[in-house]
């Protein structure tokens, strides 16, 4: 029985279990303490001074934070919508069709996932600067960076993540199902609408939630391509952190963390779902 080898014995089991516990403590203790201190009624960060919600109130009342949050949400929604559509189409093309240049396209689609943030940030900065110069010399128009350039950059990396998640879903779905639909008198569109789409929908939703998370969390790229008035919440917070810690940052951080954990959990749940019903 192969099962026997999986039974860890005595000391090994104990040591591995301890290591695993420590890893989880390592992962979650800092977060737990951060959450704890965000409720601490002490102007000194990292010291417990009794329970308070003041910092969250300050978060709600701080106009700069609120406007940054607004930008973040707008960018996240726009970039998610576009990247879900483009990423899903790309996933379908790569999993179900062979076309000229598909290998190259595949590689191009992976690059944004593995390229370091900083590199992508300078790429985009350079590109928008060149584009702006070109636009002003050729057309005489000024296209300053702003919410649009942030959105464009976020889409550029989100497409890849969406397409990876959706591709995994399509790969797990037998092509026979689409053939069966067509054998049962469905046109190509109907086969997609009633069989393919409902079955890959969890992947699309999961990918979309991931795109939303990535957009809401991104700092480095956004910082480079944001113009005046298009500061997102993470960029604003990053700026604050570089000047020092404060209980307000604790509260904002906890809100950001909660949002991203929630979205990640939803995404994981969606990706594991069985597929919607067609009515």
């Amino acid at each position: 029985m192969a099962g026997n080898a999986k039974q860890l014995k005595g000391n090994t089991r104990w040591a591995l279990g301890l290591n695993a516990t420590l890893v989880y403590v390592f992962f979650y203790a800092p977060i737990a303490l951060l959450i704890l201190f965000s409720f601490s009624d002490d102007p000194l960060v990292g010291r417990w001074g009794g329970f308070t919600l003041d910092w969250y109130r300050a978060f709600g009342e701080n106009e700069e934070v609120q406007s940054a949050l607004g930008v973040s949400i707008r960018v996240a929604i726009m970039s998610t919508v576009v990247s879900v559509v483009l990423g899903t189409m790309a996933a379908l093309a790569l999993e179900r069709y062979r076309f000229r240049g598909n290998k190259f396209f595949d590689a191009l689609l992976y690059l944004p996932v593995i390229i370091p943030d900083v590199t992508m940030a300078v790429m985009m900065l350079l590109f928008f600067t060149i584009a702006r110069n070109a636009a002003s010399t050729i057309f005489g128009v000024d296209v300053s960076k702003g919410v649009w350039s942030v959105t464009v950059s976020h889409i550029a990396f989100s497409i890849s993540f969406v397409s990876i998640v959706v591709r995994a879903r399509i790969a797990g779905m037998s092509e026979k199902l689409e053939e069966a639909a067509q054998d049962l008198y469905a046109s190509r569109w109907q086969a997609f609408r009633y069989v393919t789409l409902p079955l890959i929908l969890p992947g699309i939703i999961g990918g979309g939630l991931l795109a939303l998370t990535l957009s809401l969390d991104d700092v480095v790229i956004t910082q480079f391509v944001a113009g005046p008035g298009s500061t997102t919440l993470p960029v604003y917070v990053f700026g604050l952190i570089r000047r020092g810690v404060s209980p307000l940052i604790n509260a904002v951080s906890v809100v950001m963390l909660a949002a991203s954990v929630l979205l990640v959990l939803l995404s994981l749940v969606a990706q594991r779902a069985r597929g919607g019903d067609v009515t």
Binding site: P30, I31, L33, L34, F37, V45, G46, L210, T213, L216, D217, V219, P234, V237, F238, I241, V245, I249, N250, S253, V254, M256, L257, S260, V261, V264, S267
Partner: peptide, 13 residues
């Protein structure tokens, strides 16, 4: 997948 910035900030605190 969750917010990298915040998780670094936690250590700063």
């Amino acid at each position: 997948w969750s917010n990298f910035l915040v998780r670094n900030y936690a250590w700063r605190v």
